[in-house]
Amino acid sequence: FSEMREAEELVDVYLVFNGKLVPCHKVILAGNCEYFKRMFLSKMNESSAREVNLKGINATHGELVVDYLYSKDIEITEDNAQGLLEASSLLMLDKLKKKVEHFLIGQLEAENCVSILNVARFYQLETLLETSLKFLCDRLHKIIDTMELEELTKDDLVNVLENHATKEACFILDMKTLEWGVLSPLHRPMCHSLVASVSNRLFVIGGTPNPTSISTGVHFIESGRLNWRPRTPAPEDCRGASAATLKNKVFVVGGASNSCMAYDTLVDAWAILERPQVLFTYKASLEWNGKILLLGGTEDD
Rank of each mutant, 00 (worst) to 15 (best):
A165W: 10
T265P: 07
V119E: 00
E34G: 04
D12F: 08
L108I: 11
T127I: 00
G297Q: 08
S213M: 14
K249Y: 05
L246E: 13
D264A: 04
V182R: 03
L202N: 07
L157A: 06
E179M: 14
K134I: 02
T298K: 12
V114K: 09
S223K: 15
Y14N: 10
H219Y: 15
P189I: 08
L173Y: 04
F280V: 13
T208H: 10
N159T: 11
D301S: 15
K98S: 11
D237I: 09
L266I: 15
L140S: 01
E78R: 06
G290M: 00
K154R: 05
N53R: 12
L108W: 14
H102F: 15
V158E: 11
H192V: 02
F122Q: 12
E274Q: 13
A87C: 06
K55W: 11
T216A: 14
S88A: 11
G181F: 00
M39K: 00
L295A: 02
R229L: 13
F122A: 14
L41A: 09
S257M: 05
W228G: 03
L246A: 13
T216M: 15
K97H: 07
V218K: 05
E3A: 13
G181P: 06
V158D: 10
V278K: 14
M261Y: 09
K134Y: 02
I74A: 01
A271R: 14
W228M: 04
S197D: 14
E6M: 13
L194G: 05
R139S: 02
I221H: 02
R225I: 15
L295G: 05
K95F: 15
T153G: 07
R201I: 02
V195Y: 01
R229M: 12
Y35G: 10
H164G: 10
C24E: 00
C238M: 03
E9S: 08
G62A: 01
N118P: 01
L149G: 07
F280E: 04
L266G: 12
K99N: 15
E222T: 15
L69E: 00
L246C: 14
H102G: 15
V160P: 01
D67K: 14
L140K: 03
Q82C: 12
G224Y: 05
K37H: 04
T153I: 05
E111K: 13
P209F: 10
I292M: 07
V52L: 05
T127W: 07
E148F: 05
M261S: 09
G254P: 03
V218I: 03
K291E: 12
E109H: 13
E3H: 10
V22T: 11
F103N: 06
C113R: 01
T131P: 06
I221K: 10
Q107S: 14
V16G: 05
C33K: 00
V119R: 03
K283E: 07
T245L: 06
S132N: 01
F220D: 08
S213N: 12
C24P: 03
S215K: 13
T153R: 01
H192W: 09
T281W: 11
G106F: 07
F103I: 02
T245H: 12
C113W: 07
T232M: 13
M39W: 01
S89D: 11
L273E: 08
